[in-house]
Computed example of a mutant assay.
Amino acid sequence: MNNFTEIVIEEYIPGYEITNLIIGNPNDYRFNEVILTSINDKIYFSQEVLGLKEKSQKLRKQYTASDFIAASMCQKIQQTSQQIFEHMGARDIARIDYRVTEKGELYFLEINSVPRVSSTSECAIICKKYNISFKDILFEYMDTIDKRISNREKI
């Protein structure tokens, strides 16, 4: 309170920490991958919070979510992510974060329209799942930008 005039208090939601990486644009989604995060081999968080320490010290692990949660939930997350992506006017790439409860309730947390793109980020999960190189995923990312810009100039 010494430094700020306002504070934000959020209710903690126990559940799976899920992120959805989208590469593409409406009518041309190249990747829409649901990814699950674990800390200390825990995939269901009852009170854990991912902070700077967990990210910077690489204490978290990420997996293809379909290995841990129902395919129907993954599809729901993908569809919801596309709706959020389009509603927010995102283009080319975005990472959308959720919490999924044991009962299957989906809570949207945030959208990051400039996610980190590296061979150790969520892109690595996509490369592994589809047996493609990081160079190939970068090509898809750049190609989706090029296609969007080329289509805009024709209008």
Rank of each mutant, 00 (worst) to 15 (best):
M73D: 12
T80W: 02
S121G: 06
D28R: 08
A70N: 14
K76M: 10
A90W: 00
V117F: 15
D28S: 10
I7C: 11
I149H: 04
S119Q: 15
L106W: 04
K58G: 09
L50C: 13
E48G: 01
I132Q: 05
S38P: 04
N151H: 08
I7T: 12
Q82H: 00
V114S: 13
A124P: 01
I84A: 01
Q75V: 04
D92L: 03
L106S: 03
L138N: 09
S119K: 15
N3W: 08
N2D: 14
N27K: 12
C123R: 03
D97G: 06
F31C: 06
M1C: 12
S150G: 01
E122A: 11
I126M: 09
S66E: 12
R91Y: 07
N25H: 05
R99C: 09
I22M: 01
E105H: 13
I126V: 15
L106I: 15
L50A: 08
D146E: 10
D67F: 14
Y63W: 14
Q83T: 14
G15R: 03
N2T: 12
E48V: 01
I35D: 01
L138W: 00
I132W: 00
E33G: 02
V100T: 09
A65I: 02
N32K: 08
Q79R: 09
S150C: 07
T101H: 03
V49T: 07
T144I: 03
Q47S: 14
K53G: 03
I126Y: 06
E54L: 07
Y29A: 03
S113R: 10
Y141H: 05
L109T: 11
T19G: 15
T101K: 04
F85M: 00
I22P: 02
I126Q: 01
A90R: 00
S38Y: 01
T19N: 14
V49R: 10
I13Q: 04
R60W: 07
E110T: 03
F31L: 05
E122F: 13
D146G: 00
I39M: 11
M1V: 14
S81C: 07
N32F: 03
A94I: 04
S133A: 08
E153L: 15
S113P: 07
R148S: 10
K76F: 00
R91A: 09
E6A: 06
V100R: 04
I125K: 01
P115D: 04
R148W: 05
K135G: 03
Y141P: 02
A124H: 08
T64F: 12
A70V: 11
Y98C: 08
Q62F: 13
M73R: 06
N2I: 14
E54A: 10
A70C: 12
H87V: 00
I23Y: 04
E6L: 11
E105T: 13
Q79D: 14
K61T: 12
G89F: 02
A70R: 14
I39S: 02
E6S: 13
I23Q: 05
G15C: 06
L36W: 01
E86W: 02
